[in-house]
Design a protein around this nucleic acid. Sequence first.
DNA 1: CGCCAGGCTTAGG
DNA 2: CCTAAGCATGGC
Length: 314
Amino acid sequence: MGNTTFKTNITNYMISISNLNLFNPNECLWFLDRSYDDCMHQVVGNTVWKAIYLNGNPVLFKCTFAIDSIAINCINREIDLEEQNLLITYVEDWFDLETDLAEFYSSIGTTDVLYPLIKKYKGLRLIGINELFESLCWAILGQQINLPFAYKLKRAFVENYGERIVHNNNAYHLFPLPSQLKNCTVDDLRKLQISKSKADYILNLAHFFREDQISKEKLLSFRSEEDIRSKLITLKGIGPWTAEYVMMKCLKIKAALPIQDVGLHNALKHQLGLTNKPTIDEIKTIATAWSGWESYATLYLWRSLSVSPGETNT
DNA sequence: CGCCAGGCTTAGG
DNA sequence: CCTAAGCATGGC
């Protein structure tokens, strides 16, 4: 059962999603505005600004968070009813509002490593990357490098190949579409400090998307999650970690578990008070307790690696 | 300097 | 099937 208790309302181009249950706007804002330089959105106070394509047309909107609601405003132009509904769906997907977190929480036993974390980060939801091409590219760019550098690569890529909406002297970027990379070469991407192999993978993917050989809809129509994982791994540059990451962040598969992830290893080591990182087999054993909620388990463990504002890091 | 970062592919046993 | 090397660069 999903979290179907919230309501959406549209009046005079003002959209709101209200009556949110187990939604923590502060955790949400914290995640969106972590110390990384993410070029895909901007946080100002309790509002996040973002540009996306609705029916192929760029739109700038903002989400203002309150205690149990999100107000959505379109900034650069008026949008019709169909686009308003697409935007609502986008936001619901972006912040994973449909998921019934109570079900996750009640599945975690008091002795589980996650138990303190579900108390501490109650209402933290998985902030997604809705577009499949973007999530694949981002995962590839982030492979085996530190995150500040990964964000730097993404910004260079986005600023060079994506569209932007300028509003009040601020640029809001849209992630490059496969069609916008038609004339882009590996050497072009090398100039942005993207490695040759990563440039290959990304341009190869863009080609597949242009040929309609892969899409989010197609993947979601597969019979099993194992089929989705297998299909993703056939793509060059997509290994087990990237497949699980994308299943988690884009396809919103609750049982996705990027078990090779170093952040996950470090978080478990810290939470369990181990001297060494757990082995893959040990994690497999631990993760049996999270069955069906592996992606949220991973999210809460990742969250535990960062310090909240006002918290001391000891 | 060395080692690790939100890994993956390829080459060589 | 397995392990090792190479990739690109920044932070510590």
